[in-house]
Nucleic acid binder design. Structure first.
Length: 263
DNA sequence: ATGGTCGCGAAGCGA
């Protein structure tokens, strides 16, 4: 099974980029964040035309929104409300025997300060996830968590660790919360599983850089985690950096994981 | 050191 997660930054504007991704990579399951549209305007037909018969999404006007499109049947579709808000950041469904969670963790604003409501919202959101995924369930459950987590935890998940230490997405308090979430369920980072921590690895490059490719000031904000029992099923990863250079791109690249579902 | 760019939707917010 090939799974992709992509913060698309508007599904309506970039539906053509989805088609391009599908034609070249042929994923079985597509998880999208920042769809930025109400459900009644979601371009479902474009996905169905590409063979994605099954879907589950929740969206709102202008902001946020998460979606799962699949060639394989989806069941037990759920929408999860987080930290008392109604902002369309977490859905889940069963697919091919896995419990798949699609997450869009808040970006957290610009100030890494507890007085910032946005920053607190982000930390509270991650805290809630760490409590919500229960250990006893996950010990047996085959779970996958994907999405834009908006945190780059490792030194080589950012272009310059020292310069980024006070920048929201890489601050120690965020990494601490992130790590607690990671350990809450004995997750395995399915991307770093294939790429040593010594190697720089990014999935996002700012729109503001004059030449994002040459500057290469990236961050790894997009993640795929699996529960430990699925480690033998991990086959291959790919971060499709080329997609960041496509016409009118998202600032995020698609992150792809191949899983052996025969086991 | 600063400001730099996007999308939505029609000004300002969020990233």
């Amino acid at each position: 099974m090939r799974l992709v997660t992509w913060n698309l930054n508007s599904v309506r504007l970039r539906i053509g980029l989805i088609a391009k991704l599908v034609d070249s990579k042929k994923p079985d399951v597509i998880c999208i964040q920042e769809t930025k549209t109400r459900d009644e305007f979601f371009p479902v037909a474009a996905f169905e035309a590409k063979g994605y018969k099954y879907h589950h999404f929740t969206g709102m006007k202008s902001y946020n929104g998460v979606a799962i499109f699949s060639k394989l049947p989806l069941s037990d579709k759920q929408i999860h409300k987080r930290v008392g808000k109604n902002d369309c950041r977490h859905i889940s469904a069963r697919v091919a025997g896995f419990e798949l969670h699609n997450l869009y963790i808040p970006a957290g604003g610009y100030e890494a300060d507890m007085k910032s409501e946005k920053f607190r919202h982000k930390l509270d959101f991650v805290d809630e996830l760490a409590k919500w995924f229960p250990k006893e369930r996950s010990a047996r459950a085959k779970m996958i968590a994907v999405g834009d987590f908006n945190i780059a935890p490792l030194e080589n998940d950012v272009w310059d660790h020292k310069k980024m230490i006070d920048v929201v997405s890489h601050t120690p308090v965020e990494v601490e919360k992130f790590t607690r979430f990671y350990n809450s369920v004995d997750w395995v980072d399915a991307i770093r599983h294939f790429v040593p921590e010594e190697k720089k690895l990014y999935s996002w490059w700012s729109y503001r850089a004059e030449d994002w490719d040459a500057a290469d000031r990236g961050r790894r904000l997009d993640h795929i985690w699996v529960t430990r029992g699925l480690k033998p099923a991990l086959k291959k990863q790919q971060i499709l950096r080329a997609a960041r250079g496509w016409e009118r791109p998202s600032d995020h690249a698609p992150v792809i994981l191949d899983l052996d579902v025969s086991g």
